[in-house]
């Protein structure tokens, strides 16, 4: 098999108090070797569930999944040897031990001797830069440090395929950028063959991933390179309209306009303004502005914008990725 990851009609159900819930439905993915593959989707889309199946922590209800050609169900132990998983916002390890001791612990769990583990930790340290907190106890690290530590842990067994579940969750802009750069380097320098990362940050996926699948409610609704995905909305027209603060529900009337494909609203608490991002199937801005004015919404600024991945999502799902 030529794919780093391949799934065939993969489905996962959970039995809940309300009945059977399909967290993943008929997922068919083919991930080429040597790329960063992005799985983009809102909360509850099924990203973590998919990653857990691929990393052998959870069994599929039906369908098949292969990692580096190994069946995740029948050859779980072979899969485990060549993968690792780092989940953002998690802090596995022992708070009372230092970063180094924790890495030492996990290296030994992988079967390395103390001496081998020391060398490996040094290598990983050179790559990621842990000096600042290598001898600090884990329970005293900041979120940014923890994330670097978690990534370091994920490299201890030199995985061929790395799963990253929301690797920048909860990080500030600066730390998120550091992590993203590291992730990119891992693949560019051939240290990791293939990375599958999940995110619900558009910009992250757009910047980092060579290929993207958009997942919503357990189904893959689109996939392709950033360009290919953007081409899906190439005929659409996009505007950002800044208005005086409003409540989102008040904008329902926009939906009844023919040209409107979808819109998102982002509030700024500081300026008291809101930005409406509107995707239209054809140029129809004058009508939109009229309608807004008729509904007593005060328009501050208007400008046409280029297509982003978010607009693809908006078109496909009818709502923004960040909307509730």
């Amino acid at each position: 098999m030529d794919y780093a990851i391949e799934t065939l009609h993969l489905t996962r159900e959970f039995h809940t108090d309300e009945g059977v819930f399909k967290a993943l439905e008929d997922i068919n993915l083919k991930v080429r070797e040597g790329i960063i593959f992005g799985l983009l989707g809102p909360n509850g889309a099924g990203k973590t569930t998919l990653i857990r199946i691929l990393s052998t922590l959870l069994l599929p209800t039906s369908g098949e999944a292969y990692v580096d050609g190994f069946d995740v169900v029948k050859e779980a132990n072979k899969v485990r040897k060549i993968i690792n998983l780092v989940s953002g916002g998690e802090r596995p390890g022992y708070g009372i031990l230092t970063t180094e001791e924790n890495l030492m612990y996990y290296a030994q769990i992988y079967g390395l001797s103390r001496r081998e583990a020391k060398e490996r930790i040094e290598e990983v340290n050179r790559l990621i830069g842990l000096d600042e907190f290598l001898h600090k106890r884990l329970n005293t690290l900041s979120t940014g440090m923890i994330q670097k530590y978690a990534l370091a842990r994920g490299l201890l067994n030199k995985p061929k395929i790395l799963f990253l579940d929301e690797p920048t969750l909860g990080l500030d802009v600066e730390n998120a950028r550091i992590i993203r750069r590291l992730v990119r380097r891992l693949v560019d320098e051939g240290l990791i063959k293939t990375i599958l990362l999940t995110s619900h940050y558009m910009a992250e996926v757009e910047e980092l991933c060579d290929y993207i699948a958009i997942i919503n409610k357990g189904r893959i609704i689109a996939e392709g390179t950033v360009e290919e995905l953007k081409n899906m909305v190439s005929r659409e027209v996009i505007y950002n309209i800044d208005v005086k603060a409003i409540e989102t529900p008040k904008l329902e009337f926009l939906k009844s306009i023919d040209s409107v494909v979808g819109y998102t609203v982002r509030m700024s608490n500081i300026s008291g303004e809101a930005r409406i991002r509107i995707v239209m199937s054809y140029e129809d801005i004058s009508r939109i502005l009229d309608t807004l004015e008729r509904n007593r919404i005060k328009i501050l600024r208007i400008h046409q914008d280029r297509i982003s991945l978010e607009d693809v999502f908006l078109k496909l799902v009818g709502r923004g990725l960040a909307d509730d």
């Binding site: 998983l85 998690e90 596995p92 996990y106």
Partner: peptide, 11 residues
């Protein structure tokens, strides 16, 4: 979350 990471190692 330690168990999850432990199980990943295949040990």
């Amino acid at each position: 979350g330690n168990l999850e990471v432990y199980l990943l190692t295949g040990s």
